[in-house]
């Protein structure tokens, strides 16, 4: 059985034949589309390393069937930077040492973008930590991650203000 899906991945419309319905969105990205920035950690929704945006919402790509993103827009870590210009969340993670080994970082960054867009945390570090609890960092860079999210949120709202002006 072959199922064909249409999806927009990092802004690019794609038509993809899925030869096996068991393929997760995570495996589609990594194994078929060569987008290996999205990481496989636990593969069970517990670590957050595979976090991507589907229609703007952060979800675990490991718990999403590839066939289910038919018609949806997917954004991965590869879709953030514009050439050498980093996304504000990427820049803030570097500025604040929001990582050590880096394996969880793409998921952390995608989750942080989702969190900032959801706008339920404000500038409260406690709320940011709570709403980032789906992303585990075994190096323990949590302090830097929280600072990076706080700064990126500020930078993104300043950019929105200047764009609107």
């Amino acid at each position: 059985m072959s199922l064909s899906i249409s999806t927009i991945i990092n802004g690019e419309p794609r038509s993809i034949a899925i030869d096996d319905p068991r393929v997760s969105l995570l495996d589609l990205l990594r194994e078929r589309l060569d987008l290996t920035g999205t990481k496989k950690g636990c593969d069970r929704g517990q670590c957050g390393a595979c976090t991507v945006l589907v229609d703007g919402r952060r979800v675990n790509a490991c718990l999403t069937l590839a066939v289910s993103v038919d018609g949806a827009e997917v954004t991965t870590i590869e879709g953030l930077a514009r050439g050498d210009l980093l996304h504000p969340v990427q820049a803030a993670f570097i500025e604040h040492d929001g990582f050590q080994c880096g394996y969880c970082t793409p998921g952390q960054i995608m989750s942080a973008i989702g969190l900032i867009q959801e706008n339920h945390a404000g500038s409260d570090p406690e709320r940011i930590r709570e709403l980032m609890s789906g992303n585990i960092c075994r190096c323990g860079a949590y302090q830097g991650i929280t600072e990076a999210v706080l700064e990126a949120r500020e930078a993104m709202s300043e950019k929105n203000r200047s764009d609107a002006a």
Binding site: G48, R57, R58, N60, L63, G114, L131, S133, G134
Partner: peptide, 9 residues
Amino acid sequence: GASAQVRNA
């Protein structure tokens, strides 16, 4: 319950 990612799905 769960995480923000799981609650979104």
